[in-house]
Every structure is written in structure tokens, then in C-alpha cells.
Design a binder for these strands. Structure first.
Length: 333
DNA sequence: AAACCGGGGAC
DNA sequence: GTCCCAGGTTT
């Protein structure tokens, strides 16, 4: 049995992460949503800002949508934060302003799936349930030398059952220890088996090849899309367009895709490529100086303070800022 | 079961 | 360049 060794290792080697300081469902929930498909180091600064601005469920339930998206700028998967607000509202309406106390109830809330429900329930409430994330899948695929494709439903179910059967007290530490081991020792490439506290129980280490696990199907290649954006500038202001409510980068702000009329001066922006997980944008851009300032023109400071701009648009924005600051525009300010 | 949904660090 | 990250939802 490896549980004791793992827990002892965790006691000594756990990173001092800020969201581990409080055993409180709200902050644990926030950290878990932010950590979905996101490296811990990347979400930490966001976590601090978020907790400061929205310290509890009530404040989050009343948050302004654009403020929330702005706070999330650069983190990606923006529906996460919208689901959090929905979730907060539901907690105010149905659960007396708190998160529900069991994994089963938590799982019914928007944005909370099997992993996140298990993480909150076990870490905040000490419920003896599993929290199987990518780390745990990797650790267990090696521990039991599971060579099947872990993306298959039945294989994932099998791993979840193994984890469930392995749960040890305190479960809060145990679940986090499994993830921490996956993050620090049992890492995807070049696993540090020499430093592993449960090496002697690892089937892949003893009779297989840990570095080849977990077995993953080769992923489909990304489709490419050609995009053309027109950055409309009038005096010291830039035109922003809110993206559609659905689809990629929904609700965030970007530039026009339609060529404007009455261009006073036009300049080609440096082309760049932006890679998403399932699509690749080949982005051409034109800075178009226009003569009339209609709706939705904003100064650079306003844009940085108020609007959530996806990373894909930042290169064009930066070039435009430089253009304006160097006062190259035809019309004088 | 597969596609969709971001961004960036590590290699 | 490739991989994949404290995943969840929709199709």
C-alpha cells in the first residue's frame, strides 16, 4: 500500500500554494475552476485579484459581466467565469448563499463536473470522494500499468474506480497529494521515478515504461482559418466590436471584420498567427484611419481598463498604440 | 465518442 | 515545432 508513503511525501513536499491556506468552499471553488486546463503558476495572479474583488458568493452573484470577463482576460476558456456567476446566483437562490455540501449536489451546478465536484467536496468538506484530474489519471495509469487509451470512457471509469477504492484519510490531503505527485514527480515527460515516494508500488516502473504512459491517441490536426481585421482609428481612439454571444472568444472585444468606408489613411499591420487548441488563425490586419468617430471608439487607456481583449488581438492593438503615440495620424488631435 | 472552448510554459 | 495543463459542455 502506497497511501502512507504518499501522504508523508506530501506533508514534506507540498508547494505552499495560496489557495491551500484556507479550508473554505468558496475560495477552493474559485481556485479549482481557474485551474481547469491551466497551469497553477498561470492562474495564481488571477486568483489573488479575483478573491480581492469578489470575496464571497454574494458579491460574485452581483458582478458585472464585462468586469468578470475583464478579470479573466488572458486565462482562456471564458465560459468558466460566466458559469461561475450563474453558479453563484443559483447558490444565492437555492442554497442560502453557500455551495452545496456534497459531490453529487455540486456536480449539478454549471461548470462543476466530476473532478471539480470531487475536489471541492473532499478538500473543503472532507467528503470521502475522488477527484480525478489529468495528474491523477497519469499517476494511476503508471501505478497500475494501464496501457489502454485513457480517453476511452471505460478506461477512465476504471481509473476512477481504482482511485475511489484507494482513498485514504485525510482525503483532502490524499487527493491533493495525488495531484501534487503528478505535478512534481510523476510528470508527463521524463518522470522523476528516482524521486518518487511510491516507486516500489508502481507497476509501470517495475515491469513497464512509465514514460510511455498514459497512452494517448494521436490528436487531429488543427484547421487553419484566414482572418482579416480592420483596426479603425479616429484621432486617439480605436474602434472595438463585441464578439458574438456564442462561439470562440464569445463576448470579448476585438476589431472589425468589415472594411470601413471613408478611409483617410491605411497601413498594413504585421501579419501574425494565433494558435488555439482546435483552430489556427492566420491574421492579416489593416490600420484604417477614418474621418468620423461613430459609436464604440475608445482611448487606449479606456481599452486597457474596461475591455477584455483576447490575446489573439494584442499584437494588432500594440502596433496601433505605437502608431497613435508616435502621432503619425494624419488628422491632428 | 468527438468536437468545441484559450493561452502559454516547457521541451 | 509538440505536448498538455488541478476539465466541462455541447453535439
Amino acid at each position: 500500500m502506497f497511501q502512507k508513503d504518499l501522504l508523508k511525501w506530501y506533508d514534506k513536499n507540498a508547494r505552499p500554494l495560496i489557495f491551500r491556506e484556507k479550508k473554505e468552499a468558496y475560495s477552493i471553488w474559485i481556485s479549482e475552476i481557474m485551474a481547469q486546463q491551466t497551469r497553477i503558476e498561470a492562474m495564481l495572479p488571477y486568483y489573488r485579484r479575483f478573491i480581492e474583488k469578489y470575496p464571497d458568493i454574494q458579491s460574485l452573484s452581483q458582478a458585472d459581466d464585462d468586469d468578470l470577463t475583464k478579470l479573466w482576460q488572458g486565462l482562456g476558456y471564458y465560459n468558466r467565469v460566466r458559469n461561475m456567476k450563474k453558479c453563484a446566483i443559483e447558490c444565492m437562490d437555492c442554497y442560502q448563499g453557500s455551495l452545496p455540501k456534497t459531490k453529487a449536489e455540486l456536480k449539478k451546478l454549471p461548470g462543476i463536473g466530476d473532478y471539480t465536484a470531487g475536489a471541492i467536496a473532499s478538500i473543503a468538506y472532507d467528503e470521502k470522494v475522488s477527484a480525478v484530474d489529468g495528474n491523477v489519471i497519469r499517476v494511476f495509469s503508471r501505478l497500475y500499468n494501464i496501457t489502454e487509451d485513457v480517453k476511452q470512457t471505460k478506461v477512465k471509469k476504471k481509473i476512477e474506480q481504482l482511485v475511489e477504492a484507494s482513498l485514504a484519510d485525510p482525503v483532502s490531503s490524499y487527493n491533493q497529494a495525488l495531484m501534487e505527485l503528478g505535478a512534481l514527480v510523476c510528470i508527463p515527460k521524463n518522470p522523476r521515478c528516482a524521486a518518487c515516494p511510491i516507486q516500489k508500488d508502481c507497476k509501470a516502473y517495475l515491469e513497464g515504461d512509465p514514460s510511455k504512459l498514459p497512452m494517448q491517441p494521436k490528436k487531429k490536426e488543427r484547421r487553419k482559418e484566414d482572418k482579416i481585421y480592420y483596426v479603425l482609428v479616429c484621432k486617439d481612439r480605436i474602434h472595438l466590436v463585441q464578439r458574438p454571444k456564442t462561439g470562440l472568444l464569445s463576448g470579448l472585444y476585438g476589431f472589425d471584420e468589415q472594411k470601413p468606408e471613408h478611409i483617410v489613411n491605411q497601413m498594413e499591420l504585421k501579419e501574425h498567427i494565433h494558435v488555439f487548441s482546435h483552430v489556427e488563425w492566420i491574421m492579416k490586419g489593416y490600420l484604417c484611419e477614418v474621418d468620423s468617430m461613430t459609436e464604440n471608439f475608445y482611448t487606449i487607456d479606456q481599452i486597457h481598463e474596461q475591455f477584455s481583449i483576447p490575446s489573439a488581438f494584442l499584437p494588432f492593438l500594440k502596433q496601433t498604440e505605437r502608431y497613435i503615440k508616435e502621432n503619425k495620424i494624419c488628422q491632428k488631435l
